[in-house]
Design a protein around this nucleic acid. Structure first.
Length: 899
RNA sequence: GGGCGAAUAGCUCAGCCUGGUUUAGAGCGCCUGCCUUACAAGCAGGAGGUCGGGGGUUCGAAUCCCUCUUCGCCCACCA
């Protein structure tokens, strides 16, 4: 036995201590190679790729939730016997990682420019090498059963080759192009961003009305409205709607740009909305996407009034040069005011884009960038959804996905960063040549003229490697065995916020390069928020560290809490100020399981889980087996429907509310020998089987404690583990409605007795007993076996004696406490009568309706004249009413005969 | 401007698609009583709900339809 295994199999401590068993158990799993997906295995594969976390990040609760969901599905499928692959890895996270390292440099008083490109990139690699193990280890701590032999990194050699291959192929197909367009620019990160990377938020802005003098010396003005007056320094025209009669006479004339003095042509363009503002738009082609297009249509100049840091550039008048854009705005307004050109200012809420990495207000900026033409890629990805090859859970996200695909825009993929995949394009430096080389392998010299060449300085958007993840991790572009076996994958689990960034693009890449969907089901988990509904974030300081939670409550408790608390697509609220409030129920449940095992395991004498077991017919045994069977079915169905919170709920209810509360209490006496050896063996066998089965059911959610207990079941060999299944599937004929009904009555009776006792108090015992006696016969019928057991144990013949014995007889006391009390419920009888009355009235009502419906259906006139739908509806109604009637009657009869 | 979602116990949420086995549930919190040989991280009980308002469909509505109110979220180039 391995040392890890030995430690893990140490005696059951008196208290549940997750920290003592989880780490050792995970090591044992790894040693046994339990999570490796063999490429030549025979079973059908089941594949989930991890959404690769940022290589230098630490695990937060969002990961905790997301990765736990993945692990639950993987562990379940693995137990079912599928070749489950949970593929782990990390993302180089271009901007995010570069920002982190830059911040550290700044603390040392340096910038990346001081270091230079090569030294800076080396610095980032150092950082990455230092931290890459951390987040992967944290995944182990929370129990993720990843195939660590297949760990990948988006910037490793193989994936970099895939990125380059994709770029070149798309370029050759004409789907990658370079062009000068307005893109979103982050002046702090000093890079272009994609549309998705600019987050738009409502902003309490102003609308400034400014007068532009006409150039004809008439002294007349045109009034324009703008939210960003500083951009007027880059104006190169004015525009009005072609049908706007108010301004028809000005089209073709010119105006003078205040503060600058440039003459601005006045053009007519349909883009202009005559209803908005004054109906005149200032055109700033270098700073607004719409203005850019107007400029193109009317051949207007472009004047780039800002630098890459969003400071006013050399082309603006001296007074504004070098000013930050917001300072420039203030200055422009002051100057306009002074010249009496500012007509008025009104409140105007509008949305402003922010950098998704640093939250700086993005600047629409004209620049030369690389783009991917998306329309052709979107078509098969959209068709896959429409044809049902790609399903979303919850379904509504499918419509969001389709909507995005239908309105797809080209993807700006170049980033002016240093950390990432360098764009595989070279430019010839020879004066007359101008050759551009796009190549899979680095060229040495210009193939056209043999002159010196220079590589494009930009890197690719981080998502340009992420979108290849489902196949680049399997060796693509090589046609590897892994690729053949594990692509396409099955289920993708991620947060809704990266639906467009990642999920949609992966589908597109899947079709473009593998000619198939990368996965068939997409699960979107919600966001983890605090108790006030705020997203957890470092800056708010409301995050919960999963490592701290694991340390205090155990990984099982955390996983259970997350799974139970977050149905798909709904946000999870956790109180960061009071971890106990959030995680105690999970920990308590684990503790309950632990204690049930502490009780049960030593009482399983003679049981050998490796051999067939014999099961008795005693009520309690039949009942718990029936309940187990139903729970198994329900849990499996819930897993198939991705309703994991339901799985948690079902297991919790069964284990605590049925197995512990009732079954264990009912068989205590028998396990001590009160019913004889045969009864003891019967109880032990059912107990062992049922407990092992629910440990298995719960294993995907709470892997540690369940496997730890299962391996201690009598007869289990050293290597025994439930990690590889089987998935519990008891005999279908264990479903036993009779036993469940009888047990239901027992529970009802006991409940009623308890209520009675509470009401009368112990002093009125004689009164209770007298009333109870009158109904003893019924109880005997229903619970003959249990009655005998209890009598044997308590050594009493009458109920009265039992009551009396309770005081001084420990055995009897235990029985009373345990819930096998033998009182016929007076209140129960009364309640049953009341119930009977209710049902009788219901029966009358239903039969009345049934009679009327039947009369209608017997009416020839109705049959002849009624439209088909009406007729069908009536027939339907008749059928359902008849069924209902029978059900009620039977229930009523059963009640009557029982009373 | 489009699209989507939510509103059920003091709090966080299930249940709704496929109407009737639910007397509308769970966990937490609250109240009462218990250290009872697996478990006080527990056990036994209890209080607390006009299922957001209104209307409709139906024999029957938390569940289906319409509408209103209040909160969220996503997308979008109206300066």
């Amino acid at each position: 036995m391995s040392p890890a295994r030995a430690a893990e199999r140490a005696e059951l401590a008196s208290r549940y201590d997750p920290s003592g068993l989880e780490g050792a158990l995970y090591e044992a799993w790894k040693e046994a190679g339990a999570f490796h997906a063999h490429v030549d295995a025979l079973e059908d594969p089941y594949v989930i790729v991890i959404p690769p976390p940022n290589v230098t990040a630490e695990l937060h609760m969002g990961h905790g939730l997301n990765n736990t969901i993945q692990d639950v599905l993987i562990r379940w499928r693995r137990m079912q016997g599928l070749g489950a692959l949970y593929l782990p890895g990390t993302d180089h996270a271009g901007i995010a990682t570069q920002n982190v390292v830059e911040r550290h440099l700044a603390a040392e008083g340096e910038t990346r420019f001081d270091l230079g490109r090569d030294a800076f990139v080396e610095r980032v690699w150092e950082w990455v090498r230092k931290y890459e193990k951390r987040i992967l280890h944290q995944l182990e701590v929370i129990g993720c059963s990843c195939d660590w032999e297949r760990t990948r990194f988006t910037l490793d050699e193989g994936l970099s080759r895939a990125v380059r291959e994709v770029f070149v192929r798309l370029y050759e197909k004409g789907l990658v192009y370079r062009g000068r367009y307005i893109i979103n620019w982050c002046p702090r990160c000093r890079t272009a961003l994609s549309n998705e990377e600019a987050e738009h938020r409502e902003h309490a802005g102003k609308l400034y009305h400014i007068r532009y003098p006409l150039a004809d010396d008439s002294g007349r003005f045109l009034e324009v409205a703008t939210t960003r007056p500083e951009t007027m320094l880059g104006d190169t025209g004015l525009a009005v709607h072609p049908d706007d009669e108010r301004y028809a006479e000005f089209v073709g004339q010119e105006a003078i740009l205040p503060l600058v003095g440039r003459t601005l042509p006045i053009v007519a363009d349909v883009y202009v909305d005559p209803e908005f503002g004054s109906g005149v738009v200032k055109v700033t082609p270098a700073h607004d996407p719409n203005d850019f297009e107007i400029g193109q249509r009317h051949d207007l100049e472009t004047v780039d009034a800002m630098t890459d840091a969003a400071e006013m550039s050399e082309v603006v008048p001296q007074a504004y040069r070098g000013l930050d854009r917001f300072d420039a705005r203030a200055r422009v307004l002051v100057d306009l005011e002074r010249e009496n050109l500012l007509v008025r200012v009104e409140d105007h809420p509008h949305s402003v884009g922010h950098c998704y990495r640093c939250d700086t207000v993005v600047e629409p900026r004209l620049s030369l960038q690389w783009f991917v033409k998306m329309q052709p890629l979107a078509e098969p990805a959209l068709a896959a959804y429409r044809e049902g090859k790609l399903r979303f859970h919850p379904e509504r996200y499918g419509r969001v996905y389709a909507n995005w695909m239908e309105n797809i825009r080209d993807w700006c993929i170049s980033r002016q960063l240093w950390w990432g995949h360098r764009i595989p394009v070279w430019y010839c430096k020879a004066d007359e040549c101008g050759e551009m080389i796009v190549a899979r392998d680095d060229p040495e010299v210009c193939p056209a003229c043999g002159g010196p060449i220079e590589q494009d300085t930009d890197v690719l958007d981080t998502w340009f490697s992420s979108w290849l993840w489902p196949f680049s991790t399997l060796g693509w572009p090589d046609q590897t065995e892994e690729l053949a076996r594990f692509y396409p994958g099955d289920t993708l689990v991620t947060a809704d916020e990266i639906l467009f960034f990642w999920v949609a693009r992966m589908v597109m890449a899947g079709y473009e390069f593998m000619d198939d969907v990368p996965f068939t089901d997409v699960l979107l988990n919600g966001t983890v928020r605090d108790h006030l509904g705020r997203r957890m974030s470092k800056s708010l300081g409301n995050g919960i560290d999963p490592m701290e939670v694991v340390e205090r409550y155990g990984a099982d408790a955390m996983r259970f809490t997350l799974i139970r608390g977050a149905p798909l697509g709904t946000d999870l609220h956790l109180n960061h100020e009071d971890l106990d409030k959030a995680f105690r129920p999970g920990r308590n449940f684990a503790n309950k399981i632990w204690n049930a095992a502490r009780f049960a395991l030593p009482r399983l004498e003679g049981v050998d889980v490796t051999e067939d077991m014999t099961f008795s017919d005693e009520l309690a045994d039949r009942w718990i087996r029936s309940r187990l069977r139903r729970t198994e079915t329900a849990v499996t169905e819930a897993l198939e429907g991705f309703r994991l919170h339901e799985v948690a709920e079902l297991c919790h209810g069964f284990v605590w509310g049925e197995f512990c509360d009732w079954y264990l209490e009912l068989v205590k006496a028998r396990l001590e020998g009160a019913g004889g050896e045969e009864s003891r063996r019967g109880a032990a066998h059912t107990l062992a089987h049922v407990m092992l089965a629910w440990l298995e059911l719960l294993h995907p959610i709470m892997p540690f404690i369940t496997d730890a207990i299962a391996s201690r079941v009598p007869g289990a060999p050293d290597s025994f583990s439930i990690v590889n299944g089987p998935w519990p599937d008891s005999h279908a004929d264990w479903e036993d409605p009779e036993a469940e009904e009888a047990m239901g009555e027992l529970q009802e009776l006991i409940g009623a007795v308890r209520a009675l006792r509470a009401e009368y108090g112990v002093d009125q015992r004689a009164e209770i007993v007298a009333r109870v006696r009158a109904h003893t016969n019924r109880l005997e019928d229903v619970l003959a076996t249990e009655v005998d057991n209890v009598r044997r144990l308590a050594g009493v013949e009458s109920i009265e004696a039992l009551e009396g014995a309770a005081e001084d007889e420990p055995g009897a006391h235990a029985v009373l406490r345990s819930g096998t009390e033998l009182f016929v419920p007076l209140r129960g009888v009364i309640d049953l009568d009341r119930e009977g009355e209710r049902i009788r009235r219901e029966v009358e009502r239903v039969s009345d309706l049934l009679a009327r419906t039947r009369a209608k259906l017997a009416n020839e006139g109705f049959l002849a004249n009624a439209p088909k739908e009406v007729l069908d509806r009536e027939k339907d109604k008749e059928r359902s009413l008849a069924e209902q009637h029978d059900r009620l009657e039977e229930k009523y009869r059963a009640l009557r005969s029982g009373t």
